[in-house]
Every structure is written in structure tokens, then in C-alpha cells.
Amino acid sequence: MSPDWDVVGYVISSDHRTLVLGRLAEGPATPTQIANDVELSVTHVSRALKSLRERDLVELLVPEERRKGRVYGITEQGQEAWQLIQAKDLSK
């Protein structure tokens, strides 16, 4: 499968998306955990998660109805994009 450069370009065009995807590549986390780990506000993390979910790069690992304790993880497509970003040294 050839790399999806559109997806890679989408992720790296935002520092917030890059940081959030990179953090989730390390393992599942809540928005608050991600915010603490990458030193962003929870609002920025939530926006990044929403846009990454729309591209099927991250997924919600708990039921959609849950409002507290929402845990997110990286999808296979997200993992592939992150590996390419790392291999080509495209993250800041």
C-alpha cells in the first residue's frame, strides 16, 4: 500500500494534531491525560481529536454516550500515518 500523503499532510499541517497523534501512538489516553502529556489545553486537544476522528486516525474506545472518562486510541490508519511521519522526520 502506498503512503497516503494527503493524510500525512493533514496531520503535520497542525502542531496540535501532530502532538495528539504522536501521544496516542504511545497508548490510549483521555483528553486530559493527552493535554497534560503534550502541554496543550484540553480545548485544543478536543478539537484535534475531533478532526483526527473525522479522518479515522483516532477512535473513541468507550461508548459514544460517555461524557467523562472518554478514552481515545490510534487506529491502524493513524498508526501508519504516524510511522511515516516519524520515518521521514516530519514531526516538529
Rank of each mutant, 00 (worst) to 15 (best):
M1T: 14
S2N: 09
W5M: 03
W5D: 08
W5S: 01
V7A: 01
G9I: 04
G9D: 07
Y10T: 06
L19Y: 00
L21I: 09
L21C: 00
G22P: 08
A25E: 02
A25V: 06
E26M: 13
G27R: 07
A29W: 04
T30R: 08
Q33G: 11
A35K: 05
D37I: 12
V38M: 00
S41I: 10
V42Y: 11
S46Y: 09
R47C: 05
R47H: 14
A48W: 03
A48Y: 05
A48R: 02
A48V: 09
L49Y: 12
K50Y: 15
K50Q: 11
S51L: 11
S51E: 11
R53A: 04
R55I: 01
D56L: 08
L57Y: 02
V62K: 08
V62H: 06
E64H: 02
E65L: 12
E65I: 14
R67F: 09
R67A: 10
K68H: 14
K68A: 15
G69S: 05
R70Y: 01
Y72F: 13
G73I: 07
I74Q: 07
E76A: 11
E76L: 09
Q77K: 07
G78P: 04
Q79K: 13
E80W: 00
A81W: 03
L84K: 00
A87M: 05
A87T: 00
L90P: 02
L90N: 00
S91H: 11
S91N: 08
K92G: 12
